[in-house]
Each structure stands twice: as structure tokens, then as C-alpha cells.
């Protein structure tokens, strides 16, 4: 059994009076791709926001690399390799592709390594290399998503949190994005992936959790979940 790089121990998160996450527990082992699937408003993004310190859990514990990070500040987490690529392709539209990527390395102090990582990012995403002088906002949806992932990679993550990378993209582009996610994982980056597109997320992950109304309902190996009748009925569009 490999060591868990990330562990959530029965966390509870509230938005005012609304109980958004109820006793959510999950863990991600080093080297894994884990996906968290669920419908709109189930608490997927809330979970990610809580992990990276944008929201605070009222109770429970978040542990990363053996440390309690429940009250850690976001920038400290980025420095220690826990990075999120936000939903809706949260890129900087008026900055060029290259400037976007450089901001990804904002928290890093090892400047020489940044240069080689930039070259590496262009390697993984040749499309971005073609467009490096272009403003982020002029890219297509898929390219913006690639930029968002590439930018997160620029901060040299150990654990990458991806918030709905397939959102609003054509099926063919979604396929490309997920192939890239596989490749990033092969390079040794652990990934926690949040998705509505259960079908593709389960194909490209080792384990999965299903979240409904703020509770983890089902968990298991992705291959098992794909044949689970509850998952098939609710998320894979089968009766």
C-alpha cells in the first residue's frame, strides 16, 4: 500500500447556513489519478476549494504529504506542490500565453528550472508553443483548457487538482485533454480530478469517488465503478 499524499478526514464545509460538504473523507495515493464525480452542486468544486485553502472546513482535517493543512494559506500550498487548475479555464485573458505560463511559476524560486519547465510545457502542448505571443483570451476553448493545465504544471506540482477540465469542450477535444492528463500522470504527478463527465473520467483514472449532495456515496476502483449499476444509471446514462 502506497502512502496517501492527500487525505480528507470527515470534513464539513458550510456556506453560511448551507451545509455544503458532510463528513467527506477521501484519500489520494502518490502516483494515482483519482476522480471525484458528481452532478452540479454536489460539492465537487467546494471539495477542491477546501483542499487548496480557499475555503475552510468547519470540522475535520485535510492532510497533505503527512501534514495537517486545514488552516494553511493557499500560497504556501502552491510552494509545497499542491496546485489547482481552476474551473472554467481560469486563465488571464489579456496576458499572452507565455506570460500566463510564467505566472504559473510565480511561487517558485528555482529560476533555471523554470526555463526548462517552460520548454517542457511547450513540449507537451505544441499548440501553445505556436501561440505563445497570442493573448490568452484569443485561444479556443480547448486551447484555454490546455493553457490552464500547462500553467498549473509550471508551478512544479506534486499533486494537481483539476476542476472539470472537460467543461464546455467538444468530445474530440475532451479526448485530447484526457490523454494529456494521462501523460502528465506518467511523469509522476498525482492528480485529483473533478468531473461531471463520468464516462471519460472513469476511463482515465485509477480510483473514483461519487459525491451527491455533499456526501461521498460510492467509492472504489474506476473499473468497478463503471460496472456499478448505480453509477451506470445515474452518470453513464444507462437504464
Amino acid at each position: 500500500m502506497t502512502e496517501a499524499i492527500l487525505e480528507l478526514k470527515s470534513i464539513n464545509v458550510f456556506y453560511g447556513a448551507i451545509h455544503a460538504l458532510r463528513n467527506v473523507s477521501l484519500h489520494v495515493n502518490a502516483g494515482e489519478v483519482v476522480t471525484l464525480i458528481g452532478a452540479n452542486g454536489a460539492g465537487k468544486t467546494t471539495t477542491l476549494a477546501t483542499i487548496c485553502g480557499l475555503l475552510r472546513a468547519r470540522s475535520g482535517e485535510v492532510r497533505y504529504a503527512g501534514q495537517d493543512i486545514s488552516s494553511a494559506q493557499t500560497h504556501r500550498l502552491v510552494e509545497s506542490g499542491l496546485v489547482m487548475a481552476p474551473e472554467g479555464r481560469g486563465i488571464f485573458p489579456n496576458l499572452t500565453v507565455e506570460e500566463n505560463l510564467r505566472i504559473g511559476a510565480y511561487a517558485r524560486k528555482d529560476k533555471p528550472a523554470v526555463a526548462s519547465d517552460l520548454a517542457h510545457a511547450y513540449d507537451i502542448f505544441p499548440r501553445l508553443a505556436e501561440r505563445k505571443r497570442q493573448k490568452g483570451g484569443t485561444l479556443s476553448g480547448g486551447e484555454q483548457q490546455m493553457l490552464s493545465i500547462a500553467r498549473a504544471l509550471m508551478s512544479a506540482p506534486k499533486l494537481l487538482l483539476l476542476d472539470e477540465p472537460s467543461l464546455g469542450l467538444a468530445p474530440l477535444i475532451v479526448q485530447t485533454i484526457f490523454e494529456t492528463i494521462d501523460r502528465v500522470n506518467e511523469k509522476g504527478v498525482t492528480i485529483l480530478l473533478v468531473e461531471q463527465n463520468a464516462n471519460i473520467a472513469l476511463k482515465h483514472s485509477h480510483r473514483a469517488y461519487v459525491i451527491e449532495s455533499g456526501c461521498i456515496e460510492i467509492e472504489g476502483a474506476s473499473t468497478e465503478l463503471r460496472s456499478d449499476p448505480r453509477v451506470r444509471a445515474a452518470y453513464l446514462g444507462e437504464t
Binding site: L54, V83, G90, F92, S155
Partner: peptide, 23 residues
């Protein structure tokens, strides 16, 4: 400077700036 670029990042997308480690 890096500081100036970080300010622009905040203008462009505050949430993304935050998760990139910008305070």
C-alpha cells in the same frame, strides 16, 4: 517586475491568481 505581472494577474482573474500562489 514580477510584482507588476502579479497585479495584472489579479486584475484578470483573481481566483486563478490566488491558486497560482499569488498572495
Amino acid at each position: 517586475s514580477t510584482f507588476g505581472r502579479a497585479l495584472v494577474a489579479i486584475r484578470e482573474n483573481e481566483l486563478a491568481a490566488e491558486v497560482m500562489g499569488i498572495r
